[in-house]
Amino acid sequence: MTRIPTGDRDIIEQAIYLPMLLTVLNRDLIVVNTSSFKLKKPYLELIEETMKAIQKDLAEVKRYLHKNNIKVERLKSDDAFTMYMFVYKGYEEEHNYFNPRLRNRTEELLRYYLFERYKNTHLEKKA
């Protein structure tokens, strides 16, 4: 059983997923740059602005982890699972994450950062 409260666990998981998102987007930048798109600039701007938003959120996560003396470390990975160690208030916990779940959650977050985060600001402007 984990000693980590749900709120802190969510932040710890952001420390796992947000760097994955940045890796995916960095690869996408390379693909767009080397592609034969006629108009690359809008795609590049979308990816770059998305990366800035993720980097901003990741900085907040890192500040929170540092302030609360929480550490996250990737230990090992195989075809099915990736193991992380969380150090929380002096206690070490190892957690296995199913790789397809990591991929699916990363995809969900990518969808959020690319599209859904704009829905709320679009609705606020109409009101």
Rank of each mutant, 00 (worst) to 15 (best):
L65M: 15
I47W: 00
K76I: 12
K52C: 05
K40Y: 04
V61R: 01
A59W: 03
P42C: 08
K71C: 06
K56E: 12
K52M: 09
Y43V: 05
E45N: 14
K40S: 05
H66D: 14
R63T: 13
N68F: 08
N68R: 13
V61G: 03
Y64F: 14
L44K: 13
L46A: 15
K41I: 06
K71S: 12
K41G: 03
E48N: 13
K71P: 03
E48R: 10
L75G: 11
E45C: 07
E48Y: 02
L46W: 04
L75A: 11
I54Q: 03
K41D: 12
K67V: 10
K76Q: 13
D57Q: 10
L44R: 11
I54L: 08
Y43Q: 09
D57K: 12
V61C: 07
V72M: 10
K56F: 13
K71Q: 10
Y43F: 13
T50H: 01
A53W: 00
Q55W: 00
T50V: 04
L58F: 10
L58V: 05
V72R: 07
P42N: 06
K56H: 13
L46H: 06
K40A: 06
R74F: 05
E49M: 11
P42F: 06
M51P: 01
K76C: 11
K56Y: 12
E60I: 14
N69D: 14
K52L: 13
N68T: 12
I47L: 14
V72W: 01
E60V: 11
K40M: 08
L75T: 10
I54R: 00
M51S: 05
K67M: 12
E49A: 11
P42I: 08
K52G: 04
R63I: 15
